[in-house]
Computed example of a mutant assay.
Amino acid sequence: MGLTKEISMQQRLAGRDFLTLADYSKPEINYLLELAAYLKKQRQQGKEEKPLQGKTLGMIFEKSSTRTRVSFEVGMYQLGGMGLFLSSDDIQIGRGEPISDTAKILSGYLDGIMIRTFSQQVVEELAENASIPVINGLTDSYHPCQVLADMQTIEEVKGGLDGVKLAYIGDGNNMAHSLMLGGAIMGMNVSVAAPDKYQPETPVIQNAQSIAKHSGSKIEVTSDVQAAVDQADVVYTDVWASMGQESEQSVRELAFADYQVNKDLLDLAHPDAVFMHCLPAHRGEEVTAEIIDGKQSVVFQQAENRLHAQKALLTALMGK
């Protein structure tokens, strides 16, 4: 990437929100992935850069977290800034203060906001009223930060994204939504296999397929798990019951019984296919221990890349 192009991209991204991947173009996502790879290499070589010296990120959590909290907090520290953990139990948003008020108040204190919550509408209202970048750390509808790290991982193990086939098996949830959108933008072929009752939301499918027409990729949704996995380069799954769905666990176990990623299923994929999972995982449910702990699994490389991808995002939106 030339210096002029890099400066131009920095100017395009500075101060932007990151609410869904659909808000970003292929060149913009490519820039974030290149920056993530660069920052990862710098970290491995023991070189420190502090583009966020003196900057602060407020991190609002209405859902529990391991990877999101640690990667953002550590990422801010490594970049020279500070991450401030804000539990909904400890701030006034948890007592009914309007999102719009919270956004305006925090904009006077902070340089950026990351929020992990239930409703996508909350994230959008926060961004609409904030004068600083707002990052979607997860909602029930989308998980764009995870997919940014996923794409970094696929580039590392497959050498690129164009033409890669990713088969997502299981619940048509926020992960399925963001993988379809990210794949469509970046030229990946994404096949989602889910029971009819648990397939992704129709508007998201239509949006991803519309984007795919321009990128040349293919986005499909099916209930046929074997067809989805056939010759896949990446096989991906998630828990059957996400946070807030615990009461549905037994019903979902029955519905997804034929959607477990096991050796027989993975054998239908390309011989050098890799297995991915956003974690946390339930061994013996959506995936067998043999697969997630096996030689084709890249889940811990994928988890580590949350740190590097998040650092790239923070640098692009908040840094110089």
Rank of each mutant, 00 (worst) to 15 (best):
L3Q: 13
K5F: 11
I7N: 08
Q11C: 02
L13N: 00
G15Y: 00
R16V: 08
R16L: 02
K26I: 00
P27K: 03
P27I: 01
I29K: 05
I29G: 03
N30G: 13
E34I: 05
Q42V: 01
Q45M: 14
K50M: 06
Q53R: 12
T56H: 12
L57E: 03
E62R: 12
S64C: 12
T68L: 09
F72A: 08
E73W: 10
G75F: 01
G75T: 00
Q78L: 15
L84N: 12
D89A: 15
Q92L: 10
G94V: 11
P98G: 05
D101R: 08
T102S: 13
A103R: 04
L106F: 15
L106K: 01
S107A: 03
G108N: 11
E124F: 07
L126K: 06
A130P: 02
P133T: 01
V147I: 15
L148I: 10
M151H: 09
I154M: 06
E155H: 01
G159N: 06
L161E: 05
G163W: 03
G163E: 05
V164D: 01
L166C: 13
L166R: 04
A167L: 09
N174G: 14
M175T: 15
A176H: 08
H177D: 14
H177T: 14
L179H: 12
M180D: 09
M180H: 13
L181A: 11
G183F: 11
I185K: 12
N189M: 08
V190E: 09
A194Q: 05
A194V: 07
D196G: 09
Y198T: 02
V204Y: 07
I205Q: 14
S210N: 15
I211Y: 14
K213A: 15
H214E: 15
S215H: 09
D224Y: 05
D224M: 03
A228L: 07
V234A: 02
V235I: 11
Y236M: 11
Y236C: 03
G244C: 05
Q245P: 02
Q245D: 14
E248Q: 14
V251G: 01
D258W: 01
Y259M: 02
Q260M: 12
L265H: 02
L268Q: 15
H270G: 00
P271I: 07
L279G: 10
R283P: 02
G284A: 07
E285R: 09
A289R: 13
G294A: 07
F300A: 05
A303C: 07
E304V: 00
N305Q: 05
A309S: 15
A309K: 01
A309Y: 00
A309E: 04
L314A: 03
